[in-house]
Nucleic acid binder design. Structure first.
Lengths: 113, 113
DNA sequence: CAAAGATACATAGAATTATGATGTATGTCA
DNA sequence: TGACATACATCATAATTCTATGTATCTTTG
Protein backbone atom coordinates (compact mmCIF):
# COMPACT_ATOMS: atom_id res chain seq x y z
CA UNK A 1 0.00 0.00 0.00
CA UNK A 2 1.55 3.23 -1.10
CA UNK A 3 -0.01 6.03 0.85
CA UNK A 4 0.61 9.70 0.51
CA UNK A 5 -1.19 12.88 1.37
CA UNK A 6 -1.26 15.57 -1.24
CA UNK A 7 -0.93 18.05 1.59
CA UNK A 8 2.11 19.16 3.47
CA UNK A 9 2.15 16.37 6.00
CA UNK A 10 2.37 18.81 8.85
CA UNK A 11 -1.14 20.01 8.18
CA UNK A 12 -2.44 16.61 9.07
CA UNK A 13 -0.93 16.71 12.54
CA UNK A 14 -3.48 16.61 15.25
CA UNK A 15 -6.20 15.52 12.88
CA UNK A 16 -5.48 11.84 12.32
CA UNK A 17 -6.77 10.63 15.67
CA UNK A 18 -9.83 12.83 15.27
CA UNK A 19 -10.48 11.36 11.83
CA UNK A 20 -10.17 7.81 13.14
CA UNK A 21 -12.44 8.49 16.10
CA UNK A 22 -15.00 10.15 13.87
CA UNK A 23 -15.13 7.17 11.52
CA UNK A 24 -15.53 4.84 14.47
CA UNK A 25 -18.35 7.00 15.78
CA UNK A 26 -20.17 6.48 12.53
CA UNK A 27 -19.35 2.88 11.86
CA UNK A 28 -19.55 0.97 15.12
CA UNK A 29 -16.44 -1.05 14.35
CA UNK A 30 -13.71 -0.84 11.75
CA UNK A 31 -10.27 -2.33 11.20
CA UNK A 32 -7.12 -0.44 10.37
CA UNK A 33 -6.83 -1.11 6.70
CA UNK A 34 -10.51 -0.33 6.27
CA UNK A 35 -10.10 3.00 8.02
CA UNK A 36 -7.22 3.96 5.72
CA UNK A 37 -9.24 3.13 2.62
CA UNK A 38 -12.30 4.98 3.90
CA UNK A 39 -10.31 8.13 4.60
CA UNK A 40 -8.79 7.94 1.15
CA UNK A 41 -12.22 7.53 -0.39
CA UNK A 42 -13.92 10.28 1.60
CA UNK A 43 -11.09 12.69 0.85
CA UNK A 44 -11.00 11.83 -2.84
CA UNK A 45 -7.47 10.46 -2.57
CA UNK A 46 -6.22 13.63 -0.95
CA UNK A 47 -5.66 12.29 2.55
CA UNK A 48 -3.91 8.95 2.57
CA UNK A 49 -2.90 7.83 6.03
CA UNK A 50 0.27 5.77 5.97
CA UNK A 51 0.66 2.54 7.88
CA UNK A 52 3.44 4.12 9.89
CA UNK A 53 0.94 6.69 11.11
CA UNK A 54 -2.17 4.58 11.24
CA UNK A 55 -1.12 1.65 13.36
CA UNK A 56 0.78 3.62 16.00
CA UNK A 57 -2.20 5.98 16.17
CA UNK A 58 -4.57 3.08 16.73
CA UNK A 59 -2.29 1.62 19.39
CA UNK A 60 -2.23 4.95 21.16
CA UNK A 61 -6.01 5.26 21.11
CA UNK A 62 -6.17 1.80 22.67
CA UNK A 63 -3.57 2.74 25.24
CA UNK A 64 -5.53 5.88 26.09
CA UNK A 65 -8.69 3.86 26.61
CA UNK A 66 -10.58 5.48 23.74
CA UNK A 67 -11.08 2.31 21.73
CA UNK A 68 -11.36 -1.40 22.32
CA UNK A 69 -9.85 -4.02 20.07
CA UNK A 70 -11.31 -7.28 18.86
CA UNK A 71 -9.02 -9.62 16.98
CA UNK A 72 -10.62 -11.73 14.30
CA UNK A 73 -9.05 -14.41 12.15
CA UNK A 74 -9.96 -14.12 8.50
CA UNK A 75 -8.69 -17.34 7.06
CA UNK A 76 -5.14 -17.33 8.23
CA UNK A 77 -4.95 -13.56 8.39
CA UNK A 78 -5.50 -11.38 11.41
CA UNK A 79 -7.86 -8.45 11.42
CA UNK A 80 -8.23 -6.10 14.36
CA UNK A 81 -11.55 -4.38 14.78
CA UNK A 82 -11.65 -1.16 16.75
CA UNK A 83 -14.67 0.30 18.53
CA UNK A 84 -15.16 3.45 20.56
CA UNK A 85 -15.34 3.21 24.33
CA UNK A 86 -17.64 5.62 26.21
CA UNK A 87 -14.57 7.78 26.83
CA UNK A 88 -13.81 7.57 23.13
CA UNK A 89 -17.26 8.87 22.27
CA UNK A 90 -16.70 11.91 24.46
CA UNK A 91 -13.19 12.63 23.20
CA UNK A 92 -14.31 12.19 19.61
CA UNK A 93 -16.89 14.94 20.02
CA UNK A 94 -14.38 17.19 21.73
CA UNK A 95 -11.76 16.71 19.06
CA UNK A 96 -14.11 17.27 16.17
CA UNK A 97 -15.51 20.39 17.82
CA UNK A 98 -12.00 21.65 18.45
CA UNK A 99 -11.04 21.20 14.82
CA UNK A 100 -14.26 22.82 13.67
CA UNK A 101 -13.51 25.80 15.86
CA UNK A 102 -9.88 25.92 14.81
CA UNK A 103 -10.88 25.98 11.16
CA UNK A 104 -13.20 28.90 11.83
CA UNK A 105 -10.48 30.79 13.65
CA UNK A 106 -7.90 30.05 11.01
CA UNK A 107 -10.35 31.31 8.43
CA UNK A 108 -10.63 34.57 10.32
CA UNK A 109 -6.88 34.99 10.24
CA UNK A 110 -6.19 33.79 6.72
CA UNK A 111 -9.19 34.56 4.60
CA UNK A 112 -10.78 37.62 6.09
CA UNK A 113 -8.81 40.37 4.48
CA UNK B 1 4.65 37.85 26.99
CA UNK B 2 2.78 34.71 27.84
CA UNK B 3 1.52 33.12 24.68
CA UNK B 4 -0.61 30.06 24.33
CA UNK B 5 -2.97 28.65 21.77
CA UNK B 6 -6.30 27.41 23.01
CA UNK B 7 -5.95 24.66 20.46
CA UNK B 8 -4.02 21.45 20.64
CA UNK B 9 -0.71 22.77 19.42
CA UNK B 10 -0.46 20.06 16.82
CA UNK B 11 -3.33 21.61 14.90
CA UNK B 12 -1.24 24.69 14.32
CA UNK B 13 1.54 22.74 12.66
CA UNK B 14 2.15 23.75 9.11
CA UNK B 15 -0.01 26.85 9.47
CA UNK B 16 2.28 29.27 11.30
CA UNK B 17 4.46 30.11 8.33
CA UNK B 18 1.37 30.52 6.16
CA UNK B 19 -0.15 32.87 8.73
CA UNK B 20 3.01 34.97 8.85
CA UNK B 21 3.31 35.13 5.08
CA UNK B 22 -0.34 36.07 4.73
CA UNK B 23 0.01 38.94 7.19
CA UNK B 24 3.07 40.17 5.33
CA UNK B 25 1.16 39.98 2.07
CA UNK B 26 -1.39 42.34 3.52
CA UNK B 27 0.84 44.66 5.46
CA UNK B 28 3.93 45.40 3.41
CA UNK B 29 6.22 45.12 6.41
CA UNK B 30 5.81 43.94 9.97
CA UNK B 31 8.07 43.03 12.87
CA UNK B 32 7.90 39.88 14.94
CA UNK B 33 6.20 41.14 18.02
CA UNK B 34 3.68 42.97 15.89
CA UNK B 35 2.88 39.79 13.96
CA UNK B 36 2.28 37.88 17.18
CA UNK B 37 -0.09 40.55 18.47
CA UNK B 38 -1.92 40.76 15.16
CA UNK B 39 -2.50 37.01 15.05
CA UNK B 40 -3.76 37.11 18.60
CA UNK B 41 -6.11 39.95 17.75
CA UNK B 42 -7.43 38.45 14.50
CA UNK B 43 -8.03 35.11 16.17
CA UNK B 44 -9.73 36.63 19.19
CA UNK B 45 -6.98 35.37 21.51
CA UNK B 46 -7.35 31.84 20.25
CA UNK B 47 -4.11 31.59 18.35
CA UNK B 48 -1.17 32.95 20.28
CA UNK B 49 2.13 32.25 18.61
CA UNK B 50 4.91 31.78 21.15
CA UNK B 51 8.30 33.43 20.83
CA UNK B 52 9.86 29.99 20.62
CA UNK B 53 7.81 29.37 17.49
CA UNK B 54 7.71 32.86 16.04
CA UNK B 55 11.36 33.81 15.87
CA UNK B 56 12.65 30.49 14.55
CA UNK B 57 9.85 30.58 11.95
CA UNK B 58 10.87 34.07 10.84
CA UNK B 59 14.52 33.03 10.65
CA UNK B 60 13.56 30.08 8.49
CA UNK B 61 11.51 32.24 6.13
CA UNK B 62 14.53 34.49 5.77
CA UNK B 63 16.80 31.53 5.20
CA UNK B 64 14.42 30.21 2.54
CA UNK B 65 14.47 33.54 0.76
CA UNK B 66 10.78 34.24 1.29
CA UNK B 67 11.26 37.43 3.33
CA UNK B 68 13.80 40.19 3.67
CA UNK B 69 14.78 41.76 6.96
CA UNK B 70 15.35 45.37 7.81
CA UNK B 71 16.74 46.15 11.23
CA UNK B 72 15.63 49.40 12.79
CA UNK B 73 16.71 50.94 16.06
CA UNK B 74 13.84 52.20 18.16
CA UNK B 75 15.58 54.17 20.86
CA UNK B 76 18.02 51.61 22.17
CA UNK B 77 15.87 48.70 21.18
CA UNK B 78 16.11 46.67 18.00
CA UNK B 79 13.17 45.99 15.78
CA UNK B 80 13.33 43.73 12.75
CA UNK B 81 10.91 44.42 9.95
CA UNK B 82 10.07 41.59 7.58
CA UNK B 83 8.79 41.96 4.03
CA UNK B 84 7.86 39.41 1.38
CA UNK B 85 10.24 38.75 -1.48
CA UNK B 86 8.78 37.92 -4.91
CA UNK B 87 9.31 34.24 -4.05
CA UNK B 88 7.54 34.86 -0.76
CA UNK B 89 4.52 36.27 -2.58
CA UNK B 90 4.25 33.10 -4.65
CA UNK B 91 4.75 30.70 -1.75
CA UNK B 92 2.27 32.66 0.34
CA UNK B 93 -0.45 32.12 -2.24
CA UNK B 94 0.43 28.46 -2.57
CA UNK B 95 0.35 27.86 1.15
CA UNK B 96 -2.90 29.65 1.72
CA UNK B 97 -4.52 27.80 -1.17
CA UNK B 98 -3.20 24.52 0.17
CA UNK B 99 -4.69 25.19 3.59
CA UNK B 100 -7.96 26.30 2.07
CA UNK B 101 -8.13 23.07 0.12
CA UNK B 102 -7.09 20.99 3.09
CA UNK B 103 -9.86 22.51 5.19
CA UNK B 104 -12.40 21.64 2.50
CA UNK B 105 -11.15 18.07 2.31
CA UNK B 106 -11.06 17.68 6.07
CA UNK B 107 -14.62 18.96 6.16
CA UNK B 108 -15.63 16.23 3.74
CA UNK B 109 -14.12 13.61 5.99
CA UNK B 110 -15.21 14.96 9.35
CA UNK B 111 -18.44 16.80 8.90
CA UNK B 112 -20.18 15.14 6.00
CA UNK B 113 -21.91 12.26 7.69
C1' DC C 1 0.53 -21.61 -12.53
C1' DA C 2 3.32 -17.78 -11.60
C1' DA C 3 3.62 -13.04 -10.94
C1' DA C 4 1.58 -8.88 -9.52
C1' DG C 5 -1.00 -6.44 -6.66
C1' DA C 6 -4.20 -5.98 -2.87
C1' DT C 7 -5.04 -7.14 1.91
C1' DA C 8 -3.40 -6.75 6.78
C1' DC C 9 -0.71 -6.33 10.40
C1' DA C 10 3.76 -4.23 12.73
C1' DT C 11 7.98 -1.41 14.18
C1' DA C 12 12.34 1.41 14.06
C1' DG C 13 14.58 5.54 12.81
C1' DA C 14 14.32 10.16 10.79
C1' DA C 15 12.27 14.53 10.21
C1' DT C 16 9.53 18.33 11.36
C1' DT C 17 7.92 21.82 14.20
C1' DA C 18 5.68 23.95 18.11
C1' DT C 19 6.36 24.64 22.99
C1' DG C 20 8.38 25.66 27.63
C1' DA C 21 11.97 27.60 29.79
C1' DT C 22 15.25 30.78 29.94
C1' DG C 23 17.96 34.89 28.85
C1' DT C 24 18.86 39.91 27.81
C1' DA C 25 17.37 44.51 27.69
C1' DT C 26 14.51 48.79 27.23
C1' DG C 27 10.27 51.58 27.73
C1' DT C 28 6.15 53.02 30.33
C1' DC C 29 2.96 53.75 33.87
C1' DA C 30 1.20 53.90 38.54
C1' DT D 1 10.43 51.38 42.32
C1' DG D 2 8.03 47.63 40.82
C1' DA D 3 5.15 45.64 37.49
C1' DC D 4 4.18 44.98 32.97
C1' DA D 5 4.69 45.54 28.03
C1' DT D 6 7.90 45.68 24.30
C1' DA D 7 11.41 43.11 21.55
C1' DC D 8 14.67 40.20 20.37
C1' DA D 9 16.91 35.30 20.88
C1' DT D 10 18.10 30.15 21.68
C1' DC D 11 18.07 25.40 23.63
C1' DA D 12 16.08 21.15 25.09
C1' DT D 13 11.93 18.66 24.92
C1' DA D 14 7.73 16.71 23.28
C1' DA D 15 4.61 15.20 19.97
C1' DT D 16 3.42 13.32 15.77
C1' DT D 17 3.85 11.79 11.10
C1' DC D 18 6.60 9.74 7.50
C1' DT D 19 9.85 6.58 5.11
C1' DA D 20 11.51 2.32 4.98
C1' DT D 21 11.31 -2.15 6.06
C1' DG D 22 9.40 -6.59 7.40
C1' DT D 23 6.09 -10.63 7.43
C1' DA D 24 2.44 -13.07 5.44
C1' DT D 25 -1.96 -14.23 2.97
C1' DC D 26 -5.42 -13.76 -0.69
C1' DT D 27 -6.96 -12.74 -5.38
C1' DT D 28 -6.71 -11.78 -10.04
C1' DT D 29 -4.82 -12.19 -14.52
C1' DG D 30 -1.82 -13.30 -18.35
Amino acid sequence: MYLCSMYSKELLKGTISAIILKLLAENEKMYGYQIARKVKELSDNKIMIKEGSLYPALHKLKEDGLVTVETVNIGKRVRRYYSLTPAGVIVQKEKVTEIEDFITTLGNVLFKS
